[in-house]
Nucleic acid binder design. Structure first.
Lengths: 210, 210
DNA sequence: TCGTTTTGTGTACACTGTCCACAATGGCAC
DNA sequence: GTGCCATTGTGGACAGTGTACACAAAACGA
């Protein structure tokens, strides 16, 4: 991608971004544990300590990588949301969107297991949970996208309003758990079709149970 | 616990076990990333390379630690199962057991976050998934305990039989996801009561949806 | 133009996982 | 018992890591 091993100028230009980019590449294959600070600087064509001008820590770099990964997750969910045809019964549309969002999440977990792990496996400060850095192209965090879908379900009458509070947590728990099962649980190694089937059934459960 | 820093005999006696024990201690505070091979040998009062007589790898040690942690998870679930009063309506008993098992899982995640991470965050070969090393005191793996509860639900008529196949996956996804939320998601830092409330509601969803 | 601040370099240290050659030990065949 | 031998431990070494400290180059603002 952005590999400029030999640099002309003393200054790099946008080292911070380059380091995050390198970190993402490493996370893609190998997950968060595979992102190593020195290697990132090497790929950016810079000395190891240069990283410390932009990140306090390896951990800080990891958090930045994780944020970008989370925004990729949000994008995947949003694609699932947007793919739904808006015409027809509002309740059906809302349900389809819930399904689309859930499937988008699972699909991302399967297609980008390394990034997925980096997205969910790096603890960050609670205060940054709604940070724009974690949001997707449309400005919404994955959690916020889910919240939006749930709101739509209530408005469309497909979900009792008194169950709405905190419902994100439960829906998210379900898909998130399945994501983990897919990348290194008992579902690892199953075919795409089998996993899709399991995802559908999981979402059936959520729909019925919410 | 079993710290014998100074050893009399040349042979240790049960080094393998001692290393796993040390690994568990480290995992308890800091999760799987915190278990470092050299430190384990140090705590066992032995030279670093001695570990390689019992484990091929740091990874192998980690897997052993993870297995023990998984059996602790199974124990926590089993305690939740056993706490249910067996008298009364079979359907009610089965449902209470599902609840007990789920709550036991979540409680473990909250009380032993480090061990919990070690239990679920260390990928092992699929073939060992039913290994006795991962089982609890009663010889059942956490997955097997869950399967048993679901069987009981079907027998008691509290769950349609045609939904039974693979239902473990969905129930497990839900509680597992919540466990993650509790240890480093948006639920981190909530009081025990709030988390208990969320757990109950999650299990409500599973009960309705299964 | 000249300090000041920012950003990158060099050297160094403690620590890690792991490899190799060697040493102590305990058990088994005789 | 004696002697062999597989098992289990030790010592030393190496590459690679995160990070601290002192210094150098470049960009910027007065």
């Amino acid at each position: 991608m952005s590999s400029t091993p030999a640099r002309e100028t003393y200054r790099h230009g946008d080292l911070r971004q380059a380091l995050v980019e390198a970190g993402l590449d490493m996370a893609r294959e190998g997950g968060p544990d595979a992102v190593v600070l020195r290697e990132a600087t090497r790929r950016a064509g810079v000395s190891p300590n240069a990283a410390y001008r932009h990140f306090a820590d390896r951990r800080a770099l990891l958090v930045a990588v994780s944020n970008t990964a989370q925004s990729a997750v949000a994008d995947a969910m949003w694609r699932g949301y947007s793919a739904v045809d808006e015409s027809g019964d509002p309740a059906a549309v809302a349900k389809a969107r819930l399904r689309g969002v859930g499937l988008g999440y699972i699909r991302f977990a399967r297609e980008q297991p390394g990034l997925f792990r980096a997205a969910i496996g790096v603890p960050d400060d609670l205060a940054n949970s709604g940070s724009p850095a974690k949001a997707g192209v449309n400005g919404l965090t994955s959690f916020q996208i889910l919240g939006r879908v749930l709101d739509e379900l209530v408005v469309a009458g497909a979900m009792p309003a008194d169950r709405r509070p905190n419902a994100e947590l439960f829906a998210w728990s379900a898909v998130h758990g399945l994501g983990m099962l897919v990348i290194d649980g008992p579902l690892r190694g199953l075919t795409d079709q089998m996993i899709d089937g399991a995802s559908e059934r999981l979402i059936d459960m959520v729909e019925r149970g919410l």
